[in-house]
Write a protein that binds this DNA or RNA. Structure first.
Length: 262
DNA sequence: ATGGTGGTGCCACCA
């Protein structure tokens, strides 16, 4: 079985490209982030036309997450328990959806960006990661043998080698100690980054800004991860970042990340 | 040498 995570940066602007990638990559399950649409705008046929079932959660033109699967899709859950909200009054944004696919509990997660270190969105980001950690810890406490995949755009570069130049990130988000601590806390709750051993850095990225020719200049960041519970991590036989999908006209600014399960 | 979205016809917001 093959499971992927991909921030598509608009499912409507990239329907053809997503369909072509699904055919090429031959994945069984894909967790998608940044669909940038409401449920009533979601182009289901992109997925159903290729034999996938799909569950989407989108509330506006911002955020939006989905899980598509051709190995079954049941027990769809929108938001994780305790997921923090944003706004006044605080309301959960469309940043998390879970579904069981082929025996694996798949979560598609879009961690808040944080914007600037002195921005309220940064505090929100840290709280969001902390509550995700608590929820993920509880899932494993309930069933230590559960196969759980925490897939998504984490908006954190956990290691210095996960950005092209640490000097350029002085005082910036994605690399601060608090963000890295929050990410590591999820790992320490029992969830392993199963891609890094198969795609070691430094200089191995999943995201390249559209601005300033970042991709050809190899100025990227590794911020998309698939973290696996112990029972799922034990099944991982390979993983790769599909850097080629970042090439050409109409690409998302994120590359898909693919994990192979035995 | 940025791109997506939505409300308006270029600009604001988000990344």
């Amino acid at each position: 079985m093959r499971v992927a995570t991909w921030n598509v940066n608009s499912v409507r602007a990239r329907g053809d490209r997503i369909a072509a990638w699904l055919e090429r990559a031959d994945v069984d399950v894909v967790a998608i982030q940044e669909t940038k649409c409401r449920d009533d705008q979601f182009p289901e046929s992109v997925f159903t036309g290729l034999g996938y079932e799909v569950a989407h959660h989108g509330l506006s033109q911002w955020n939006g997450v989905a899980v598509a699967s051709r190995v079954g899709l049941t027990d769809v859950q929108v938001a994780f328990p305790g997921q923090p909200g944003w706004g006044d009054p605080a309301a959960a944004e469309a940043r998390a959806i879970g579904a069981t696919c082929g025996g694996v509990r798949v979560w598609s997660l879009y961690v808040p960006n944080g914007r600037e270190v002195d921005d309220p969105h940064y505090v929100y980001k840290l709280e969001w990661l902390e509550q995700l950690r608590a929820a993920a810890r509880d899932w494993l406490a309930e069933d230590p043998g559960a196969q759980i995949a925490l897939c998504g755009d984490w908006n954190v570069a956990p290691e210095d080698g996960d950005v092209w130049d640490m000097a350029e990130f002085e005082g910036k988000t994605h690399v601060t100690k608090l963000e890295r601590d929050a990410f590591r806390a999820v790992v320490e709750a029992g969830y392993t980054d199963v891609v890094r051993p198969h795609a070691p850095g430094p200089g191995v990225y999943t995201y390249w800004d559209y601005k300033g020719l970042s991709f050809p200049k190899r100025k990227g960041m590794r911020i998309d991860f698939l973290l696996a519970s112990p029972a799922l991590a034990a099944r991982v036989s390979g993983a790769r970042i599909d850097r080629d999908e970042r090439k050409g006209k109409g690409a998302s600014d994120h590359a898909p990340v693919i994990v192979e399960l035995a």
